[in-house]
Design a protein around this nucleic acid. Structure first.
Lengths: 182, 182
DNA sequence: TCTAAGTTTCAGAAATTTCTGAAATCCCAA
DNA sequence: TTGGGATTTCAGAAATTTCTGAAACTTAGA
């Protein structure tokens, strides 16, 4: 399976970015290749498209499955597994954010709560800073949970509104406002 | 400089999480230590607080400065550099998001635009997918730019409102109608 | 049950990243 | 201008992560 130069360049870029995104080069490349393929690909096609070892492909696919970023497909009369990425970019984005939250934020929130439960440690400043950090993370993850529930259509609308939302917010002070207004 | 057990645990956690956050262990630990310190620390204090080499501290601080996550301070009659983290957690969060965007998203957006400029490559599906991805990233970074401009007070308000915002959005068809509330 | 295609596992090799100590550099104050 | 404290740089060592090939495992269907 020979890649077009467009695929090639895209795949190499995702490979390079992989480490910044918390995945390794191979995983980034596999994902990129699947993302650009209109048809599902099997492990062997990926292996020789990318010029990597079969076992590396297997581990990369496993990793992508743990991220829920690829789907398995089967064809009549073919025992091999075929892989695709979800079609819908919004779905992909939701998954990405959920998984990154799970890996990058949740463990820290848990740890902060643990530290607070251990009770006063005789370092007021540190204790206050930890509490403050925990509260902030709770506020943000709470907001995330709310946004996560919205249908995509509303999310898009919100993003399109952009800063106009600020105006709306100001109109909604009343009982809801926690902060004082200018 | 002996760390309290609270500091110790917090620092070790940040060290472990470092790799998931795109920084290395030492950088995570240095940041954690500064975050919990009411007073600015100099490189030597950090070095022996964490039990690492002086040069490692120097490189870690340089990295944190490139992230704009630490500030330099000086004291009268002391030539050494002292370091702190910004006090305000919202400011820290803004910086973090801006820097991650710069490192994790902007290069890809640039690359996608580049690929599109290269013109038709005879792979309609791939070309369409790339355009779609580019548009999505533009929508999201555009929204980010808008949010970035808001004062913290409004951001907090918005986060607190959470899903109630969805209701507001629905009221906003086309031109903004701010008056109607449920 | 047996066979063989397909897949996964895993120990070690290769590559990459992180860390250290020594040397170089910087820069204030005398 | 020089002496010396403070900091940075950098080459190699150490640690970690990624990748491979061979072997083990799985399972559909003969």
């Amino acid at each position: 399976m020979k890649l077009t130069s467009l695929q090639q360049e895209f795949v190499l870029h995702f490979g390079e970015m992989g480490s910044r995104w918390g995945i390794n080069r191979t995983v980034g490349q596999i994902y990129a290749l699947l993302f650009l393929s209109s048809e599902p690909l099997n492990a062997e096609q990926i292996t020789d498209g990318l010029g990597i070892s079969r076992s590396n492909t297997s581990m990369g696919l496993k990793e992508l499955q743990s991220w829920k970023l690829v789907r398995l497909k089967h064809f009549q009369g073919d025992r091999r597994d075929y892989f695709t990425t979800p079609e819908d970019l919004w779905e992909i984005t939701r998954i990405l954010i959920a998984e990154r939250k799970k890996r990058e934020i949740d463990p820290t929130l848990t740890k902060l709560r643990e530290l607070e439960l251990q009770g006063p440690a005789g370092d007021n400043y540190a204790e206050a800073r930890i509490a403050e950090l925990r509260e902030m993370i709770e506020l943000m993850t709470g907001f995330y949970d709310d946004m996560e529930k919205l249908e995509t259509e509303r999310l898009v609308k919100m993003m399109t509104l952009g800063s106009k939302i600020a105006g709306l917010i100001d109109k909604t002070s009343g009982a809801l406002s926690l902060t004082k207004r200018k």
